[in-house]
Structure formats: C-alpha cells, structure tokens
C-alpha cells in the first residue's frame, strides 16, 4: 500500500533520516519503534509532505506522493494524527471533529462518519459542545484520533498515541486502534510503549539514529534480542 525507498530527510544541514526503506501492506498494523530522536516521527512527517528537504521516493498504491502538497496527500486518505495530539484548543469538540473531514469531497456522507466516530468515542459525544482545550489528556488523544477518522483514512498514522496517558486510557486507545484496523483501515503506529504496540502490530521496524536497524514480524520482534539492544539501548549498559 505504501512503500518508502531510500528516504533521506534533512532539517537544515542535519540529516535526520538516512536510507530508510519501509513497506506497509494493506490491512496491517505496522509499528515503528525506537528511542527518542531516532527519526520515527520524521517518517510520518515525510509521508504527510510536511518536511522541506527530502530525497528518495514514497509511493502510495503505486503512485509517487513525495512531491505532492500536504492537502493532496490528505485527500488520498493518508491521515496523520500528530504527536502531542495538536487538537485545536479553542474550537469545540464538535468543531475539532468536523474539521477532520475538511479535505473530503463526499460531504453528504460526513454525518455517517460522525455517528461512527461517536460510537467509538461516546465520551466525545457527551462533550461535543465543550471547548477542546478543557478536555483531559486522554480525552484530547481520543479527540485527535476521532478527528483523524473523520478524514476517512485508508492509512491512519498515529504518532505516540499513548504518550503521557494514564494506563487505563492507554488500554482504551489501543483497543480502539485495534478496532479501527479490524474494520479495514491500515495503521502505521509510532510508539515508545513497545510492549503495548507489539501486542496489536503485525509487523514492526526498529529505528536508531535515522536508520532502520531491524525489522520483522511481530513475534520475531517480540522475542528479539535486537529489539532490546537497539530500543532500550541495553548495549550501552551491559
């Protein structure tokens, strides 16, 4: 569905991704693991078209998207739920959700989506008139995902959805991601919480300072020493 070949990304003169290759099959949950600053989020940003300086190719369902404008990429159904939630704090919950559908042409079907999103997140339905900035962290994360779903994603990219959340919210959010995937949406997940991420993933990549250093099926990753070494940085300890 999505294929990345030899991707290099620079922020100014600093290279943050080097020769990244990645392949996401339709219907799967693919997880990117790695320590802070290893370039996971940059991969999502590159796919979304919001990095300035990029080399290599990114193709979605066979066609190149790496020089497309971010609006056009969203219209293809590649939806990015950014790190730190980035909801619109002064808009109401409802307006936040609505704006997620901004790029869609099929405006008549939006109410269907809205209902669906509210069944995923009944709490947001209760608070739809509330200003989003007053929600708790967990609720804001739910809102960010709900907003993403309104774009009718074919590929949903989630950047650290569990960051800073209480364990019960983390559980809930992962159950919802699983459900979204089981209803046909491909998911690309960036996570620090490796244990949790691997519990729902099909395939994973491990990154270290801008490169993919290991990849494999979920079980392989789960048992892998490589994961522990690269991800937890154990090689520096033991």
């Amino acid at each position: 569905m999505l294929r990345i070949k030899d991707l290099d990304v620079f922020y100014g003169k600093i290279q943050v991704l080097e020769g990244v290759n990645l392949n996401i099959e339709e219907g799967k949950v693919v997880v990117l693991l790695g320590a802070n600053g290893s370039g996971k989020s940059t991969i999502l940003r590159a796919i979304s078209g919001i990095v300035d300086n990029l080399k290599g190719d990114i193709s979605f369902q066979g066609s190149r998207i790496d020089s497309m404008r971010p609006e056009a990429i969203v219209s293809l159904g590649i939806i990015h739920v950014p790190e730190g939630r980035q909801i619109f704090p002064e808009l109401t919950v409802y307006e936040n959700i609505l704006i997620g559908s901004y790029a869609r042409k099929d405006r008549k079907k939006i109410n269907e989506e809205l209902e669906k999103v509210y069944t995923y997140f009944p709490r947001l339905f209760e608070r739809q008139k509330q200003v989003a900035g007053t929600l708790s962290g967990g609720e804001q994360q739910m809102l960010a995902i709900a907003r993403g779903l309104m774009g009718k994603p074919r590929l949903l990219m989630l950047d650290e959805p569990s960051l800073g959340l209480a364990p019960k919210f983390v559980e809930e959010i992962f159950r919802i991601i699983e459900r979204i995937n089981s209803e046909g949406t491909t998911v690309l997940l960036v996570e620090q919480n490796a244990e949790m991420a691997l519990s729902i993933a099909d395939y994973g990549y491990v990154m270290e300072v801008g490169r993919v250093v290991f990849e494999g099926e979920k079980d392989v990753l789960h048992d892998s020493e490589a994961l522990k070494i690269h991800y937890l940085g154990l090689k520096y300890i033991s």
């Binding site: 971010p70 950014p82 980035q86 909801i87 002064e90 704006i99 901004y102 790029a103």
Partner: peptide, 17 residues
C-alpha cells in the same frame, strides 16, 4: 472553522488538508 483552526495551530491545520 478551518480559518480558526489554522489560526490556532498551523501544522495541525495542514494535516487536516
């Protein structure tokens, strides 16, 4: 609503298309 959204957070607005 999009204009208000863009005023609050440009990057997130771009990600909404």
């Amino acid at each position: 609503v999009a204009m208000r959204a863009a005023a609050q957070n440009k990057t997130a607005a771009v990600l909404m298309g």
